[in-house]
Design a binder for these strands. Structure first.
Length: 301
DNA sequence: CGACTTTGACCCGCGC
DNA sequence: GCGCGGGTCAAAGTCG
């Protein structure tokens, strides 16, 4: 899995995030096996808040995965990995002032493990400008240089490779992966205005693990139901909306597509929101990607 | 017939 | 420059 070498640091982040979210639930007395909150943040590409979760991990040791007993036939186990190729995304307005009860609990005030995104962006921009000026001498090629998009990956324990996440995807490629018996599939969001892509591959080390990598940000309404389904009416890249409303509109859909809640649209999050969401969500049935979350999933080496 | 998948060819970046 | 591996294109095939 050569491609995962770039995730070396993220392995640590992933496991930290895992314990972070477990910690979040413990703190809020909310351990009912749902994945609300954590996966939402990463699926919505709200990395500033995801880093907040990361910050919160340092407070406590990892929790036993037995807290999340599987209750569904096709159980899923997720570990988040945010890549270091985090670029070309507008900054989240609240990024500099995240307040949360969990952040306060961190031993170092939530500073030590902060994910650095901005510096990498600037550095990369400079690099790309340099390359641009060099390449201007060359004729235009059919394929433009791929823009590096903010990406994140998570590991899911599932029998199904391509998990339904509420968006419609079109497969546009499949490649054999070096040193892996399993191919990697490439999907693109079917919405023409949306450039979000995702890669799906099965771990060569543990065939029960599916590695899904998202790239880009949805720019349209979430169709939620895969084909001809009900539209939920919230925006995929919304930065604000009323959480209770969202919960209620999602409820029926989530019952059918348990992992949807882990891939829901962006939102602003503050401590009251998290409490509110936890409270609201606890009334929803048990389901979710993280219900049998494993504290640590080793991706490579 | 439209939406989606499959698959070989091609492009691109990178290391040697 | 060359080869390798990852990523994408696009025509053909499949499915409902």
């Amino acid at each position: 899995m050569g491609n995962w070498k770039e995730f070396d640091e993220e392995q640590m982040i992933a496991s930290s995030l895992s314990s972070g979210i477990l910690d979040m639930w413990n703190t809020s007395d909310y351990c009912d096996k749902t994945s609300l909150g954590f996966m939402d943040l990463l699926a919505s590409h709200d990395f500033d808040h995801a880093s907040f979760l990361f910050n919160s991990q340092s407070q406590s040791p990892q929790q036993p995965s037995s807290v999340f007993e599987p209750t569904l036939p096709s159980t899923t186990t997720s570990t988040l990995v945010e890549t270091s190729e985090v670029l070309n995304l507008p900054a989240t307005p609240n990024s500099s002032s995240i307040s949360s009860p969990w952040a306060e609990h961190t031993s170092d005030g939530g500073q030590a493990n902060k994910l650095v995104v901005k510096d990498e962006e600037e550095e990369e921009e400079e690099k790309e400008e340099l390359q641009k000026s060099k390449k201007q001498l060359k004729p235009q090629k059919k394929y433009q240089k791929r823009q590096k998009e903010r990406r994140f990956a998570f590991v899911t324990k599932s029998e199904v490779d391509h998990l339904e996440d509420g968006y419609r995807w079109r497969k546009y490629g499949q490649k054999a992966v070096k040193n892996s018996p399993f191919p990697r599939s490439y999907y693109r969001c079917t919405n023409t205005t949306c450039g979000v892509k995702k890669r799906v591959e099965r771990s060569s080390e543990d065939s029960t693990l599916v590695v899904t990598t998202y790239e880009g940000q949805h720019t349209h309404m979430n169709p939620v139901m895969p084909r001809g389904g009900v539209h939920s009416g919230y925006q995929a890249n919304a930065t604000t909306f009323d959480m209770p409303v969202q919960i209620s509109t999602q409820h029926n859909q989530l019952q059918q597509y348990p992992y949807l809640q882990s891939l829901q649209p962006a939102f602003n999050m503050d401590s009251s929101f998290v409490h509110n969401r936890g409270f609201q969500a606890s009334r929803i049935e048990d389901f979710g990607l993280l219900q049998d979350m494993v504290p640590r999933v080793r991706i490579e080496e």
